[in-house]
Nucleic acid binder design. Sequence first.
DNA 1: TCAAGAGGCGCGATTATTCACACTTGGCCC
DNA 2: GGGCCAAGTGTGAATAATCGCGCCTCTTGA
Lengths: 228, 228
Amino acid sequence: MVNTASRSRRRAPGNTQERILDAAEALFARKGYQATSVGEVAGAVGIRSPSLYNHFRNKEALYRAVLERLLDRFAAPMEALAHGPITEERLLDWLDTIVRMHHANPNLARLLQHAALSGGPGTGELIERFFRPMMMRDPRLEQPGLRALGESGLQPWAVMAFNNLVMSYVTMAPMYRDLLGQDPFGEEALERQLALVRTLLLAVLRFDGAAGAGYPPSPTPSGIDEKR
Amino acid sequence: MVNTASRSRRRAPGNTQERILDAAEALFARKGYQATSVGEVAGAVGIRSPSLYNHFRNKEALYRAVLERLLDRFAAPMEALAHGPITEERLLDWLDTIVRMHHANPNLARLLQHAALSGGPGTGELIERFFRPMMMRDPRLEQPGLRALGESGLQPWAVMAFNNLVMSYVTMAPMYRDLLGQDPFGEEALERQLALVRTLLLAVLRFDGAAGAGYPPSPTPSGIDEKR
DNA sequence: TCAAGAGGCGCGATTATTCACACTTGGCCC
DNA sequence: GGGCCAAGTGTGAATAATCGCGCCTCTTGA
């Protein structure tokens, strides 16, 4: 479908727009929206910043394009989990899928984390499009253990917890790199993270009544400085 | 000369240095090191940026002072957990404590998250002083379920997971504020988070064999307990 | 009277963005 | 083929704003 008949001269090795998006994604993910300069992005691509404006109206448009591309990448696999009854093994599948997605492409989690901390353009849409769908109280919880979850009103909290668990692995990984003595994004680490997360889910499901409000109102260990 | 305009009493409640630290902490926590300008900090305090240099040598020194103060606040309660044998209920206490600490003062978690994503001054020290101590393979695991954890080499991974879980609650909370229909930093939310996290820990401890050996897609080729 | 601390001024660098301009193309007419 | 133009994509120079930060003066509480 793509012609690209003649080999480009010394001009553009590939689609510049795509290369800008790649570079911008990496930089926005690492430094956030504000701390990333368009000159930096341009430099990473190998052009000067004014040239970048031939492809994107401004910095914000570039950022939104990056977001859009990332959300699209995640949309399809998530959609697949959206139909049919929810069983234990389907929950495991869901976990498995998002762990692998974030592992294979950590930048969405990083951008979401930046947005959660600092805000920035499009944060509202981000919430609506990425978080809202997975937080809606789901009437499809059919198994007894799962139904308890849904009816106790705990479901969104549990979803949040597991989602945080998965995303923070990606966003905090650099901190643990040395401590673990293993590349957090290697194959072996992925398997370990998968096993751990799966174990947690199974454990909490089996635990059952767990969800119930039957928890002692916290013993309050030692003094914790409140804000003055 | 004439432009006096006669400001209000310039005697502030506490000394200016403290107020600068407060403002800087809030801003660094929200926007990160690079994206925060000293003018912004000064503005929040109610002074001009050159005045700020009467109290801190430069931006980096200010940032490090903020870090220092935060680490100090967390040091004492953490220290309390550092001695004696580790039992199930002591683990629960530990979780309880750090959840409450982060809840009462979310800024350390936010700064750590920024540092994990973008680096910045003092990131190395942050790792050594905050993460290293809690990641060291602990010989004090005495209960059978816990011993399995330690000997399987899974301990650091489990610690990381629970720490991530607690910290990401703080750093991601803004995203969920609307979705949960509740202030994530209110009293009620704290209790809920405490119950959830405690349930998770108990569940995974009870789950036992949890170590992961029994999981199909996780071969776990053994022998990872080596430390680099 | 004195020093701590606040503010005005300003330098040099960097920011996002615009503009005028060069060059390389593919397509079209002759 | 050659001539020609429009579109696309690159550039350096220039804009105004903001950045971190040093210098120097003035106010103020002790």
